[in-house]
Measured scan of single mutants.
Amino acid sequence: MQIFVKGLTGKTTTLEVEPSDTIENVKAKIQDKTGLPPDQQRLIFAGKQLEDGRTLSDYNIQKESTLHIVWR
């Protein structure tokens, strides 16, 4: 499925993911596209910070959802 990651600059990155992907895995995909290391990424969805060990489905993140990224 496709999801979007929007940064503070307003730039949006598209990712191809599975609902079973962990947040850690998603951060690795973001690094592949942007070069930003996972330890500098904070992902937010529906006002919650996403924890590395959880999956996208744990947070009810579905296709075409938009996550927000904040740099540490």
Rank of each mutant, 00 (worst) to 15 (best):
R54E: 04
Q49R: 10
K48P: 01
E18A: 12
V5R: 01
D58I: 02
V70I: 13
H68T: 12
T14I: 14
L8C: 11
K29V: 04
G10Q: 07
R54N: 09
L36A: 06
V26F: 02
I3L: 05
G10P: 06
I30M: 07
M1A: 02
D39V: 09
R54V: 05
Q49M: 13
A46S: 09
G47V: 02
I69P: 01
T14P: 08
Y59I: 02
T9G: 15
V26N: 00
L67M: 05
K11T: 11
G7R: 06
S20V: 05
L50G: 01
E64D: 14
K29Y: 07
G47M: 04
T12H: 07
H68Y: 14
T55R: 11
D52G: 06
K11D: 11
D32E: 14
D58S: 13
N25P: 00
G35M: 04
D58V: 03
L56F: 02
G10N: 08
K29C: 03
E18H: 14
Q2F: 13
T22P: 04
D58C: 03
I30G: 01
I23N: 01
L43F: 03
V26M: 03
Q2N: 10
I30C: 02
M1N: 02
K33I: 13
L43V: 05
K6S: 08
Q41T: 15
V26W: 00
F45R: 02
L56W: 02
K33N: 06
T9V: 09
R42M: 15
A28S: 11
S65G: 05
K6G: 04
Q31R: 13
Q31I: 03
V5L: 11
L43I: 08
D52W: 03
V17Y: 03
S57D: 08
Q2W: 11
D58K: 02
F45G: 02
I44T: 08
M1G: 02
D21F: 07
K63G: 13
K27I: 04
G7S: 12
I23E: 00
K63A: 15
K63M: 10
K48R: 11
K27D: 00
E16Y: 13
K63C: 06
G7E: 11
W71V: 13
E16M: 12
I69F: 08
D58A: 06
L43C: 01
K33L: 14
L36N: 04
E51P: 02
S57I: 08
Q2M: 13
V17H: 01
T13F: 15
L67Y: 01
L8E: 08
G35W: 03
G47N: 06
Q40E: 10
L50W: 01
A28W: 11
G35S: 04
D21W: 11
Q62I: 13
A46I: 06
Q31W: 15
K33C: 05
T9W: 15
G47H: 05
I61R: 00
V26I: 11
R54W: 11
P38W: 13
R54L: 11
L15E: 01
D21K: 01
Q31A: 14
E24N: 08
Y59L: 04
Y59E: 02
E64P: 03
D52R: 04
K63T: 12
L67H: 00
E51L: 09
T14G: 05
V70C: 07
E64H: 14
D21G: 02
D52C: 04
V70P: 02
T14C: 06
K6D: 05
L8V: 12
R42W: 10
H68S: 09
